[in-house]
Nucleic acid binder design. Structure first.
Length: 845
RNA sequence: GCCCUCGUGGUGAAAUUGGUAGACACAAAGGACUUAAAAUCCUUGCCGCUUGCGGAGUGCCAGUUCGAGUCUGGCCGAGGGCACCA
């Protein structure tokens, strides 16, 4: 039998689609739109299996929506600024630009091998001046709106990369890329005022119905809204310091407070800069880092001051003031009051410094003797030991009442606090978008005039090994405008800024005057389905949501609010791991399989240790190169397999056995195609078209439902079943027309999965018209004869074949005549019969 | 510690949303074809009784129900997120 030649056939279709510009989209208000977007890749050099999975999932959806008659926008671009280019350029002594451009061209041709339905005319690259020009415009717009500002701040300093790291780029106290221990350093930084929108970003999470709950919860926790109160503590007289303000969510525990604790960065620390002991303490605190886990386990330590604070609720209660390592300056007010009985951290601290532990919340109303030992009590209960607060129900009643009282006596104020911090966007890097700011002789920042945009990144062919590259570009840095001397900002923007609006640019990729057309974005946006890895659950998605808010701030031209209506987070691609006898990682290419055991290829006497399946990574050598795989098995086989084994949201295990099975299956489908043509040629007179029609309609229904629910793995199973059914059913002497009509529908619904193959088969049927998604007929799907499950006392005892819609009595007549079933019933009395039509009957004896 | 998600064969997984548990696939074992191998096809898959049938069975223990993988409560385990957050 003729083999299916995937190589020539896939190439042929890809060329044809390209030539016809089949996936090119244009604004068309007469059609309903569908914006399908996958997270765009960083051009690291080669595509990996994660890309293959991501873009295949998106392509299935885009092709499906297109068949359904939607005007589909399915673009692709490159997140092309970033550190790897800079690092690679340093290593190989070439320009980041050249490195990036070569990678893009290579990865683009690799992506094309997958046969994706992408509108390549809309391709964008964030490192091109055509793109970042508009980003600079936006920066200036936000600057005018007061959403950009500069402040001096402690930053996580990576001493190897010479750059600032975001908190989330610090892993276990080390830089996420360099692995170097992070230092603290004070720098002047540009910030986006994301906290201005904290409430809105939190609130409108509720409107995102098509987002995974998991992601919404992560964002909610990240924003971290908490309700509480600012409390004022007076300091005993005789000091230059008169009062200290604390933020607390538990003002109702004030009577249990036994100390005040300040961050070492608290403004009051300026009074202690001459105290050698304090400086040493501060140094010790800084050594432990800022937010790392090492610090979580660190001992709670404090530095006792001579200050004494007065409890605002009772002038007679006086407590000591400490600096403590567990208080952070950038949350709340950098000061807390410690209530050891009801906060574990405070309890640990109190025990170390022998401070009072007075419980003020008792779990049971009557238990006035409640004591706290080693574990702080944080649960609900009733206030006691608290003068006029006694008896209040905690926390609901007690917190509100206490705040009311504090406000009345002018010692407190209701306050909502957010964990979210402003977004630091300055990066001391070359390969990023230049910040369109200049400084005058007095170091005052000024906007670059709009007509001077873009601020072009100067070409640097040889990067120095350390420092901020732009700072060394003297000619570029110094600039004269209207006869006045200025120097440029030499930091570049965080690359998360680049990806915070690229989805808008795709709507108007060629527009020169501005980043987008309002007409375009108001038609295409929001993105109907966004698909990508869950690792972007917080930052990228939150920043993009912020950016939309910021652009729409004081601007009513946007007809949508949230950028991503639907979000789907796909799982990772995993592979078994291998190690040789000496414990070195071994790549799958270096292994042969003999009698079910795995040996080293070059030395097949050496058994290889097979480890657990883990997400593909270069360090574990368990990666598979998509390009080679596509060349060996074809794009359709790869698409079929990457979809087949696991639901898209879960991890999938790549295996050579799996891809081989998909490859063989495509050949079987090709044989089925040949059988169809044989039968069509025979031109039978007899026809029992109902049977095949019913099958086809059922198949369409299943595929459609599974497409709608992202159950792409089940579609592959449906396809396997369809093959098994059809290869036998073709012997039923169907008329040519019946065969043709049904086969066309079946092929049409599988084009999203295996587009080259399905289109080739359609062509062999001489079908050249534009395809559309076939409707199924629900009536046709119902079988007339059905199998009904018979249970006796809830246990399955048999199946009865009957006509659809049979009533209870008629069904029972069949049951008592059934040889097998009647013996269970015998003469016994029947207590009850439960009959669910067409499904099940349960007989209770 | 807090929050979230998930526990189904040797493996990846299905299950009309409370109604035949294990579809479909991988791996394994046995068989057919073949001189042989590859390829292809078929069968098997827990426990009893040599067929057929019966029993157990969706992490564990209870509960609701005619009926629970699915709902409720408790426990155990795995994964992910967050964290001196006041």
């Amino acid at each position: 039998m003729e083999r299916y030649n995937f190589k020539s056939i896939e190439e042929k279709w890809q060329k044809l689609w390209d030539k016809k510009k089949l996936f090119q989209t244009n604004l068309d208000k007469t059609k309903k739109k569908f914006y399908c977007l996958e997270m765009f890749p960083y051009p690291s050099g080669k595509i990996h299996m994660g890309h293959v999975r991501n873009y295949t999932i998106g392509d299935v959806l885009a092709r499906y929506k297109s068949l359904q008659g939607y005007n589909v926008l399915h673009p692709m671009g490159w997140d092309s600024f970033g550190m790897p280019a800079e690092n690679a350029a340093r290593q190989n002594n070439l320009s980041p630009k050249k490195w990036t451009e070569e990678n893009i061209s290579n990865m683009k041709s690799q992506l094309k091998l997958l046969g994706l339905s992408i509108d390549w005319d809309r391709e964008i690259s964030t490192c091109s001046p055509e793109y970042y020009k508009h980003q600079q415009e936006f920066f200036l717009e936000l600057y005018d709106k007061g959403l950009v500002y500069r402040k001096e701040q402690y930053v996580n300093w990576d001493p190897v990369d010479n750059t600032v790291l975001a908190n989330e780029q610090v892993i276990d106290g080390k830089g996420w890329r360099s692995g170097a221990p992070v230092e603290r350093k004070k720098l002047n930084q540009w910030f986006f005022n994301i906290t201005h929108f904290a409430e809105e970003l939190l609130e409108s999470l509720n409107s995102l119905e098509e987002w995974p709950n998991k992601v919404k919860i992560m964002q909610k926790n990240w924003i971290g809204k908490s309700f509480g109160c600012e409390v004022k503590f007076k300091i005993e007289t005789g000091n230059p310091i008169e009062e200290i303000k604390c933020f607390t969510t538990r003002p109702d525990t004030l009577f249990g407070s036994s100390f005040l604790a300040l961050s070492v960065d608290h403004p009051l620390s300026k009074h202690f800069v001459n105290d050698q002991n304090f400086l040493e303490f501060k140094k010790k605190c800084n050594e432990t880092g800022t937010t790392e886990e090492s610090l979580a386990n660190a001992e709670k330590i404090g530095f006792k001051t001579e200050l004494t604070a007065i409890n605002p609720l009772d002038q007679n209660i006086k407590i000591p003031v400490y600096f403590a390592n567990f208080v952070l300056m950038d949350y709340g007010l950098g000061a807390v009051f410690g209530c050891p009985a009801h906060d574990q951290r405070d309890l640990d601290f109190a025990k170390k410094y022998k401070l009072q532990v007075l419980p003020v919340v008792t779990p049971e109303k009557d238990n006035q003797n409640f004591q706290v030992q080693d574990e702080a009590y944080t649960g609900p209960g009733y206030i006691f030991n608290s003068s006029f607060l006694n008896g209040l129900q905690c926390p609901d009643e007690s917190i509100i009442k206490t705040i009311e009282h504090l406000e009345k006596i002018n010692f407190g104020e209701k306050k909502i606090n957010f964990r979210l911090k402003d977004w630091g966007i300055s990066r001391q890097r070359y390969w990023g978008c230049p910040i369109p700011i200049i400084y005058d002789e007095n170091n005052n920042p000024k906007k670059i005039p709009k007509n001077m945009l873009p601020v072009m990144l100067p070409d640097i062919n040889k990067l120095k090994t350390s420092g901020n590259p732009l700072d060394n570009e003297i000619e570029w840095k110094n600039i004269i405008i209207d006869g006045k001397k200025y120097y440029r900002e030499t930091d570049t923007l965080d690359t998360f800024v680049d990806s915070s609006w690229y989805f808008l640019r795709f709507c108007s990729p060629k527009k020169k005057e501005y980043g987008f057309n309002y007409e375009d974005i108001n038609y295409w946006m929001p993105v109907d389905q966004y698909i990508g890895g869950v690792e972007h659950a917080i930052l990228h998605l939150l920043y993009s949501r912020f950016f939309m808010n910021a652009l729409a701030h004081k601007n009513n031209k946007f007809k949508f609010k949230e950028p991503f209506k639907g979000l789907f987070t796909q799982g990772m691609v995993c592979h078994e791991t291998y190690k040789d006898q000496s414990g070195n990682w071994v790549s799958p290419d270096e292994i042969v399989n003999i009698d079910g055991k795995k040996y080293l290829k070059n030395d097949n006497s050496h058994l290889v240790k097979v480890g657990p399946s883990e997400s593909m990574s270069k360090s574990k050598k368990n990666t598979i190169d998509p390009e080679n795989i596509i060349k060996d098995f074809g794009a359709d086989s790869v698409r079929l397999f990457i979809l087949s084994d696991s639901p898209p949201e879960k991890d999938v295990q790549w295996s050579i056995e799996g891809i081989s099975a998909s490859f063989k299956f495509i050949q079987k489908l090709w044989n089925l195609n040949i059988r169809f043509h044989e039968e069509i040629k025979k031109n039978h007179d007899e026809d029992s078209s109902d049977k095949l029609n019913r099958f086809t309609n059922k198949f369409i229904k299943k595929v459609e439902e599974n497409l709608n629910s992202f159950s792409y793995n089940v579609i592959v199973a449906n396809l396997y079943e369809a093959y098994a059914y059809l290869i036998k059913d073709l012997n039923n002497n169907y008329k040519s027309n019946t065969l043709k009509e049904n086969y066309k529908k079946i092929l049409t619904v599988i084009t999203p999965i295996i587009p080259h193959f399905a289109n080739e088969c359609l062509e062999t049927l001489s079908i050249n018209e534009t395809l559309s998604w076939p409707d199924y007929d629900s009536k046709l799907i119902e079988e007339n004869e059905i199998a009904i499950v018979i249970q006796i006392n809830g246990k399955k005892r048999g199946l009865v074949k009957a006509k659809r819609g049979i009533n209870e009595n008629n069904l029972y007549d069949i049951i008592i005549k059934d040889e097998k079933l009647k013996k269970y019933i015998k003469e016994q009395k029947i207590k009850k019969k439960i009959y669910i039509e067409n499904r099940i009957m349960n007989i209770i004896i």
